[in-house]
Amino acid sequence: MVAQKLEQLKVLFAEMDRALIAYSGGIDSTLVAKVAYDVLGDRALAVTANSPSLMPEDLEDARIQAATIGIAHEVVQTHELDNPNYASNPVNRCYFCKSELHDTLRPLALERGYPYVVDGVNADDLGDYRPGIQAAKERGARSPLAEIGITKLEVRQISQFLGLPWWDKPAQPCLSSRFPYGEEITLEKLHRVGRAERYLRDLGLRNLRVRSAGETARIEIPAEDIKDFVADHDLNALVNAFQGYGFTYVTLDLEGFRSGKLNQDLPLVKA
């Protein structure tokens, strides 16, 4: 089944002939970039949007992965934080983020002669609350993984089949996703969350989030890792570091890490 879907993905790109990939460096868009390059060669271009909500090390990962694949790679600046509709952090914040992204990529694609802009949306994403998908569709973007029905698990399976060393890379959504809806997002807040997550990454943690609510940092790590985390690390040093970044309180979420946790209240918001 995985091999069949990979072949379908190749056929899809062959039919496109030329494509610009909205490339974040995450495992989904990296697989799209890999297959596009394998099929199209220099008729494929990967473009990463750099903004304050992208951690510098994630941008560096995107550069390294693109170089490993061989695909041409460019970086453009986006300015979603300048839009009050985004910075106010409404429940459809991602709509304004993806609007900014594709309003930047579409003219670039047309200027360079790429008839298609494609992204890394997978089939599982269609079942989640993703207002950004609508913004991309309105601007003519295509989602090859979703079109073929490739799930997140299959993205990892295909990536491993292709020998991509980052096939098990944890999901790393933008830093703006760390804030509860309705709390304003500022450059200062993004920086302190980014520094806090970098601190935890340097401790060797992979699956993690630092949720930011007011002056409180709430650390999420897998539930099975909590006991060892508390036993093995200097918590006083961690608290001092986080307070140095600007947080007043530092807490540990005993439920453990769960992707998309801040979306759990959305049914109440929508009602």
Rank of each mutant, 00 (worst) to 15 (best):
Asp61Gly: 01
Ser99Asn: 10
Ser143Trp: 01
Asp168Phe: 05
Arg106Cys: 07
Asp168Ala: 15
Gly120Tyr: 02
Ser88Val: 12
Leu105His: 09
Asn89Gly: 08
Glu74Gly: 07
Leu110Glu: 15
Tyr95Arg: 00
Val118Asn: 05
Glu138Cys: 15
Ala67Asp: 14
Leu126Cys: 14
Arg112Thr: 05
Gly182Cys: 11
Gly120Asp: 00
Ser177Asn: 06
Asn85Phe: 04
Arg93Pro: 05
Gly113Asn: 07
Gly182Pro: 08
Glu138Leu: 15
Thr151Ile: 03
Ile148Ala: 14
Thr68Ile: 13
Asn89Thr: 10
Arg130Thr: 11
Glu154Ser: 05
Glu188Lys: 13
Gly70Ser: 04
Leu110Tyr: 08
Ala72Phe: 00
Gly132His: 03
Cys94Tyr: 03
Glu80Ile: 04
Cys174Leu: 07
Leu187Lys: 14
Glu184Ser: 13
Arg130Ser: 14
Gly182Lys: 09
Asp61Val: 06
Lys152Tyr: 03
Val118Cys: 12
Gln157Ser: 05
Leu153Arg: 15
Leu108Gly: 08
Gln77His: 13
Leu108Cys: 07
Phe179Glu: 01
Pro173Thr: 12
Leu164Pro: 02
Asp125Asn: 14
Glu74Ala: 12
Ile69Asp: 02
His73Ser: 05
Gln172Cys: 13
Leu126Gln: 15
Gly132Tyr: 03
Pro84Val: 10
Ile150Phe: 06
Thr104Trp: 02
Phe179Asp: 03
Ser176Pro: 05
Glu183Trp: 00
Asp124Val: 09
Tyr114Pro: 00
Val118His: 04
Tyr181Cys: 07
His73Lys: 05
Asp103Thr: 11
Pro165Ser: 09
Leu105Tyr: 06
Trp166Leu: 06
Asp125Tyr: 12
Leu187Ile: 12
Leu175Pro: 00
His73Gly: 03
Arg93Gln: 08
Asp119His: 01
Glu184Thr: 15
His73Pro: 01
Ala123Lys: 01
Thr78Ala: 06
Gly163Met: 07
Ser88Tyr: 03
Gln134Met: 09
Leu162Asp: 07
Arg130Pro: 10
Leu110Pro: 02
Leu81Gln: 06
Pro90Trp: 04
Cys94Gln: 03
Gln65Ala: 09
Pro170Val: 11
Asp82Lys: 13
Leu190Cys: 10
Pro90Phe: 03
Tyr86Gln: 10
Val75Asp: 00
Val76His: 07
Leu145Thr: 11
Ile69Cys: 04
Arg112Trp: 02
Gly132Ser: 11
Val121Asp: 01
Asp125His: 13
Arg142Trp: 07
Phe179Lys: 02
Asn89Val: 08
Pro165Gln: 08
Leu145Asn: 12
Pro165Ala: 09
Pro170Ser: 10
Ile69Met: 01
Val117Asp: 02
Gln157Glu: 14
Thr68Gly: 14
Arg106Met: 10
Asn122Pro: 02
Gln157Met: 10
Pro173Leu: 09
Glu147Tyr: 12
Ala72Leu: 07
Ile64Val: 15
Ala146Lys: 09
Ile150Glu: 01
Trp167Thr: 13
Asn122Trp: 00
Trp167Cys: 12
Ala109Met: 08
Glu147Ser: 14
Ile158Ala: 00
Asp82Tyr: 08
Leu126Ala: 14
His102Val: 10
Asp128Lys: 10
Asp125Val: 12
